[in-house]
Amino acid sequence: MPEQSSSTDTSTPTSTPTSTPTSTPTSTAPTPSTPGLPAGLTTRPLRTSDAHAVFVLMAAQEAEDIGQVAIEEADIVSDWAKPSHDLGARSVGVFEGEALVAYAELMGADRADTAVLPSHRGRGIGTWLAHWLQDLGRAVGSSVIGMPVPQGSPGDRLLESLGYHVRWTSWVLKLPEGATIPERDLPPGHVVRTAEPAELRAAHDVLEDAFLEWSVRERESFEDFEAATTGRPGFEPWNLRVVVDADGAVVGVSLVLVSDNGTTGYVDRLAVRRDQRNRGLAQALLVDSFARAREHGTSTSELSTDSRTGALGLYERVGMVATSTWVNRGIQLGPSGDGAL
């Protein structure tokens, strides 16, 4: 699940405007300055009670595009639990009757996610959503927006045709069933274990410091991290792994989740403090994370990485293999939306 959420879609524009039910709140986003939606479709901002419908929608799109479902409903619920995310102002659902057939949302300054039901492609819905997101991005002061799509998918081709350029490439990697990652001895005094509740803030700092070395975004607040981590449906304390040094300081962190109906241990985030790198800590965290996941019933192990980190080679050297490739396509937002990254 590159960037923790997935998806986008394909379509071609039509010219019939959409209507919005008067019984639901109206999004703060402006009306897109683009051809409208097909007749019979309505829109409204999403609510937290829509999480399952969004999951079903995204799962259908992923099954069509990559032959498997990477997204989990818990991914959506945990994202929407972040105090900073105003779901009503940052999302739109497209409905046919009571059925959700497409959606889009913008989190933070530039991270967009969209999906269109495969049976509804080719009707201009994806194009409408792309322009809706651009208009929303301008309204909230974003200079660029982007979203992950499977490389070569209909969504990838649609965004390319709309002027979105590849910002980076991501890979989902799997440890083949039955394979193990070679163990690495830790430096003297270092230990890998479950994070203690009092170490949650230190774990957040290690993750954010490392990710912000290459990710151009605002620093995630501790409150958002806490809500999306410990507040994630199904979270258990063992999911958050840390390496502590001889002084008890957190110097490495791994967040490992159980996904795919309990069959896969998925490392959602992994980071080592800059001054502690090249000492085997990342590899020790991987060994520990996947071992703990196997203890909880999983049979396979996965993670994702992207071209900004330079970590692909590390994971390949310990025996992991890429199973899918994604691209993040973005577009620069000027006054008229012209110009792509």
Rank of each mutant, 00 (worst) to 15 (best):
T14W: 06
A53M: 06
W128N: 01
T10F: 14
T18A: 13
P188L: 09
S5M: 11
E220Y: 05
L341Y: 11
P32K: 04
P237R: 00
I181A: 03
R277T: 06
T31S: 12
A195I: 13
R157S: 13
R201L: 12
P21R: 06
Q283T: 14
S289D: 06
A39I: 03
Q151M: 02
T8E: 12
P45W: 08
A210K: 00
D288S: 11
R44A: 02
R308T: 11
S301N: 09
L100H: 05
V287S: 10
P25N: 03
A29N: 06
Q61E: 12
V206I: 08
A227Y: 11
V321W: 09
S19I: 03
G280D: 08
R90G: 05
V172I: 09
A115W: 00
A282P: 06
S19T: 01
V216K: 08
S78D: 08
A284K: 04
L57A: 05
T20A: 15
E218R: 11
Q332D: 10
A311I: 15
T325A: 01
H52K: 07
S221D: 07
V56P: 05
R47F: 10
R90P: 07
A246C: 10
D338W: 08
V287Q: 09
P118C: 08
F95R: 04
R219V: 10
V258M: 07
L159M: 04
G124P: 02
I71E: 02
P150E: 14
D86H: 04
A139K: 00
P35D: 15
V243R: 02
W128H: 00
V69W: 05
S336I: 09
D75Q: 07
L285A: 14
L212V: 09
T169Q: 11
A63F: 14
F290P: 02
T16K: 15
E316P: 04
N328G: 14
H85N: 04
V321Q: 13
H190P: 11
V77K: 07
Q68N: 06
R329M: 11
I76A: 02
T305M: 15
E218C: 10
S301K: 00
A99D: 11
L46E: 04
G234D: 04
L285C: 10
K82M: 13
P38H: 05
G155C: 08
R123T: 01
S161I: 05
L136F: 07
E295R: 04
H296I: 13
L257S: 07
V321Y: 08
H131I: 11
T169D: 05
W238Q: 05
G280L: 12
G163R: 01
S5D: 09
V216A: 11
G124F: 08
L333C: 13
L175I: 04
H190A: 09
M147W: 03
L100W: 07
A59L: 12
L186W: 08
T300G: 05
A322L: 08
P2A: 15
K82G: 03
